[in-house]
Design a protein around this nucleic acid. Structure first.
Length: 492
RNA sequence: GGCCCUAUCGUCUAACGGUCAGGACGCCAGGUUUUCAUCCUGGUAAUCCGGGUUCGAUUCCCGGUGGGGUCACCA
C-alpha cells in the first residue's frame, strides 16, 4: 500500500493568475483526483515587498470560477483562515517554523550566518562578471569563528542564513517527465535561505513546507529545474526523503518566450472577461504539454481526471495559441443550454448598452439561439445582435444581390410590402409568395435580410423575422425596415 | 557567457526500431445556404543538420545548430 498522494499549487500573491499558473494548478489538481489524493493550495507570501493587495482574493476567486478548489488551504475569499490539518497554509504565518529549521541547518553545518552587506555582494558580483566567472557568493562568512559570529549577532548586525553548498559533488534527481537530471554542486550558489527581515526565501520555505505538509509530488514549471539541486541538498541536509519532482514544459508566447504576466491576454481574468468559458479554457490548456493520445480533443474536467497521467506530459514547451482556444470556445458555446447561454451572455449585452430589461426574455433567448453557432467569444455578442435593437445604417448598394438589377429589387420589395399588409411574415408565406410571383429567391431574400440587419453576414431573414414577431411591435419594425430599404434604393 | 532543459506540418500533437509519418486548429477548394455560421468532402503543410548502432531509424547514442529556461536577501 503506497502512501496517499499529496500535491500542491503554491502561488505568490503578487498579481493576477496567468495561464501558465492555471495549467500548473490544473495538472496538480488532475493528478490528485486521479490518484484519489489531496490537492493543497499554499500561499507563498514571503516577499513582503512584492505582495499586491487583493491579488490573493483574486487568485482564490479565479480557482473558484474553474471549480479547481483545493482540499486544503486558505478558505475561499478569506486567505487568513485555513482548512486542513497542516496549516497555516500561508507562509507568512509560519515564520517561526522556518527560523527553527534554519537553526537546525546551522547546527548541522549545512548552513551558516552571513553578515555581508549588499555593497560587498554587489562588488563581488561585478568582479566575477568582469572575469567572466559565474556570479557566486565566495563563502567569506563561512570562515568566521564561533565567537566572532556570537559577537556580531549580539551586536544586532544585519545578517542572512546561507546554504553551505559542498564542492565537487554531483547532485542528481529523477524527474518524472524529464528522467535523470544531474548538476555539479560547483554550479550551485550558497543560496540565501533566511533573509535579513526574518522571512525565508522560496527555497527554504517550500522545502520545509513540502516536507511538513507531506507533499509526495512537486509538480511545477520547468523554470524550477535549475534550483531543484538546492532543494535536493536541503532535503538531504534535513535527513528527509525528497518528493518526486515533475517539471512541466513551459507555456510560450507566439514569440516563443516564456509567458509572463507582463504580456497581454495571458491573465486568466482577462480571458474570462473576454467571454472564454472556464470549461473551454481548461480543456484547451490541459492539452498544452499533455495529451491522452485519443482522437477526440473535447474533454470535461471529469474526462480529464480519468485520462490524466504524468507519464504523458511532454518535455518541450508549447505555444499558447489563441486561434485554437477560439475554436474550443465555440464548441463549448454550441454545447450550452439556452438558459445557460442566456445567463452567461447577459452581462455582455449589458456591457454593449443594450437595454435587455426592456425586452421580453423570450425575444432575447430567440436571438441568442440564432447567434449561438456563430459566436466564438461571448464578448462578440453585443455587436452581432445590435441590429435587433437599433435600426441599422448601411450602404444601400448592399441591398442589391450579386449583379441583379436595382429595379427588380425595388419591385420585389414593394410587392413584398404589399403582401405583408395582409399576411404574416413567415417562412411559408414568403416562400409561397416567391414561387407564386416566379421571383429569384436571391432577389428577395438577400435584400430582405440586408434591410433587416444592414450587415453582409447574419442569420437568415425568416429566423430574424420570427424573432421580431415575439415583440408586440415586431411586425411594424419589419415593415419599417423594408420601407426604408426601398426608400434608400430610390436614392442611389 | 556558464549551467540546465529541449527539437515531427504555421500552431497543439500521435506514431512496440519496420506507417503512404496519423489527428486537431488555422488556411485553401468544393458541396449545402439568399448571405454568414453550422455541417459534409477534399487539399495544403513536418521528422533541424551530421555522424554512428542496426537488415532497417522520427524513434537509441554522440556531436553540432536552433529554441527556451536559469544564474537575487523574487517566486
Amino acid at each position: 500500500m503506497s502512501k496517499e498522494v499529496r500535491v500542491r499549487y503554491a502561488p505568490s500573491p503578487t498579481g493576477f493568475l496567468h495561464v501558465g499558473g492555471l495549467r500548473t494548478a490544473l495538472y496538480n489538481f488532475l493528478f490528485a483526483r486521479k490518484k484519489q489524493g489531496k490537492y493543497i493550495l499554499r500561499i507563498e507570501d514571503t516577499d513582503q515587498a512584492r505582495i499586491v493587495p487583493g491579488s490573493l482574493e483574486n487568485i482564490l476567486q479565479t480557482f473558484n470560477d474553474f471549480k479547481l478548489n483545493a482540499d486544503e488551504g486558505p478558505y475561499w475569499q478569506d486567505g487568513t483562515q485555513s482548512r486542513g490539518g497542516f496549516g497555516p497554509y500561508s507562509q507568512s504565518q509560519r515564520l517561526d517554523i522556518y527560523k527553527k529549521h534554519a537553526q537546525e541547518l546551522i547546527e548541522k553545518k549545512a548552513a551558516y550566518y552571513c553578515f555581508c552587506n549588499p555593497a560587498r555582494l554587489e562588488e563581488l558580483r561585478k568582479n566575477q562578471e568582469a572575469q567572466k566567472l559565474p556570479p557566486k557568493y565566495d563563502k567569506q562568512c563561512l570562515t568566521l569563528s564561533g565567537p566572532e559570529i556570537e559577537a556580531k549577532l549580539r551586536a544586532g548586525e544585519s545578517h542572512v542564513v546561507r546554504l553551505n553548498v559542498p564542492s565537487d559533488q554531483t547532485i542528481r534527481f529523477t524527474d518524472v517527465v524529464h528522467g535523470e537530471i544531474k548538476i555539479s554542486s560547483n554550479e550551485v550558489d550558497d543560496q540565501v535561505l533566511l533573509k535579513s527581515d526574518g522571512f525565508p526565501t522560496y527555497h527554504l520555505a517550500s522545502v520545509v513546507d513540502d516536507h511538513l505538509m507531506q507533499i509526495t509530488h512537486v509538480i511545477r514549471g520547468d523554470e524550477w529545474i535549475p534550483s531543484t539541486p538546492k532543494h535536493i541538498l536541503l532535503y538531504s541536509a534535513f535527513g528527509w526523503e525528497s518528493p518526486q519532482f515533475a517539471h512541466l514544459p513551459l507555456l510560450l508566447s507566439k514569440t516563443r518566450k516564456k509567458l509572463s504576466k507582463r504580456e497581454g491576454d495571458v491573465a486568466v481574468r482577462d480571458l474570462l472577461e473576454q467571454g472564454y468559458l472556464p470549461d473551454a479554457l481548461l480543456n484547451f490548456i490541459a492539452l498544452l504539454g499533455w495529451n491522452p493520445k485519443t482522437k477526440d480533443e473535447i474533454f470535461s474536467l471529469l474526462d480529464l481526471i480519468e485520462q490524466f497521467s504524468l507519464e504523458k506530459v511532454n518535455k518541450a514547451g508549447a505555444v499558447f495559441d489563441l486561434d485554437k482556444l477560439d475554436w474550443f470556445n465555440s464548441v463549448y458555446i454550441r454545447k450550452m443550454k439556452p438558459e445557460e447561454l442566456f445567463a452567461k451572455t447577459l452581462p455582455y449585452l449589458v456591457k454593449a448598452e443594450i437595454p435587455v430589461s426592456m425586452y421580453p426574455t423570450e425575444f432575447v433567448s430567440e436571438i441568442l439561439a440564432l447567434e449561438k453557432d456563430r459566436l466564438r467569444k461571448l464578448s462578440e455578442i453585443g455587436e452581432r445582435v445590435m441590429y435587433f435593437f437599433k435600426d441599422p445604417t448601411y450602404d444601400a448598394k448592399l441591398l442589391i444581390w450579386k449583379k441583379s438589377d436595382k429595379q427588380i429589387i425595388i419591385q420585389n420589395l414593394e410587392k413584398l410590402l404589399e403582401l405583408l399588409k395582409t399576411t404574416k411574415p413567415t417562412e411559408d408565406n414568403i416562400k409561397k409568395f416567391i414561387s407564386d410571383n416566379e421571383m429569384k429567391t436571391g432577389e428577395v431574400l438577400w435584400p430582405l435580410r440586408v434591410a433587416l440587419t444592414g450587415v453582409e453576414a447574419s442569420p437568415g431573414p425568416f429566423e430574424i423575422m420570427k424573432a421580431f414577431l415575439v415583440l408586440p411591435n415586431g411586425r411594424e419594425i419589419i415593415l419599417k425596415r423594408i420601407n426604408s430599404a426601398v426608400a434608400n434604393l430610390y436614392k442611389i
